[in-house]
């Protein structure tokens, strides 16, 4: 049994330690927000937080998540919406939406580390790939969420 802390709750799963966290979340814990895109940590569709840091869960053996706090898109905001999610709505960021949960998790980790990021900070942190090409709006939405006046819905 592997014991995890996911979105603030203890979870136990009977899986191999080398199973990537992504598949534990998706196929064993029913958390489907993080997506499989490449399996090699290149695209970031699987991004979740591990102790607040963005990680590519497709390439992280679940054993390495033991004793750490895993947060997925489902747990990004305990009540309602993170200000980034609101900004994403305001700027109509997603197209197909498949990569967007990973985008949001990367952006949330960026804002936690740098509340008012520069364009260069965004360039560096946002290495997630989007095939629909939503990048212009991702950048705009991050800047909007970083403004002190950004709407904060719920937690």
């Amino acid at each position: 049994m592997i014991k995890l802390n996911v979105n603030g709750k203890p979870r136990s799963v009977d899986v191999e330690g080398e199973m990537p966290l992504l598949f534990v979340l998706r196929d064993h814990l029913g958390l489907l927000g993080a997506k499989y895109g490449c399996g090699i940590g290149a695209c970031g569709a699987c991004t979740v937080h591990l102790d607040g840091m963005p990680v590519r869960s497709c390439s992280l053996p679940v054993a390495q998540a033991v004793g750490k706090k895993v947060v997925t898109i489902e747990g990004l905001s305990a009540k309602g919406m993170h200000k980034l999610q609101q900004a994403w709505i305001d700027h109509e960021v997603p197209q197909c939406g498949y990569c967007q949960t990973g985008m949001l998790m990367s952006a949330a980790a960026l804002l936690a580390a740098k509340p008012v990021p520069t364009d260069a900070d965004i360039d560096q942190a946002m290495t997630n790939l989007c095939r629909c090409g939503t990048y212009t709006r991702v950048r705009e939405a991050i800047h909007a969420a970083a403004k002190p006046t950004a709407k904060k819905v719920g937690a």
Partner: peptide, 14 residues
């Protein structure tokens, strides 16, 4: 479709 998409709610094929 966007409000659901920022929450990771939509059911994609996978």
């Amino acid at each position: 479709d966007i409000p659901d998409k920022v929450l990771g709610k939509p059911v994609f094929g996978v």
